[in-house]
Amino acid sequence: MTKSELILKLADANPHLYQRDIETLVATVFEEITHALEHGDRVELRGFGAFSTKQRDARTGRNPRTGDSVEVTEKNIPFFKTGKQLREKLNP
């Protein structure tokens, strides 16, 4: 399922709404999550899962093609942990 298919499903289930409002709604949900992660905040959606960022330390990496050493700076990566309820539904 893609974002546009998600929008269509929601539009089908809510014929009283404008599709452009549903588009704004879906965009807002993911924008808010992104915004929170940008600030180092955590997003906890009980039953579904939680989004957070994890810090990766600076390291010396290698260019796999040339074998040259390159310094990789410390960085944050987005992380998703599946919620208990969803985990149970995946494995009934």
Binding site: D21, T24, E31, A36, D41, V43, E44
Partner: peptide, 22 residues
């Protein structure tokens, strides 16, 4: 890095403000 936790309530509030539904 504030370390706050965002929940459904804040997501709904943002949608309420952006989309103008109840």
């Amino acid at each position: 890095m504030s370390g706050n936790t965002i929940t459904r309530a804040q997501l709904s509030e943002a949608v309420y403000e952006e989309v103008g539904l109840s």
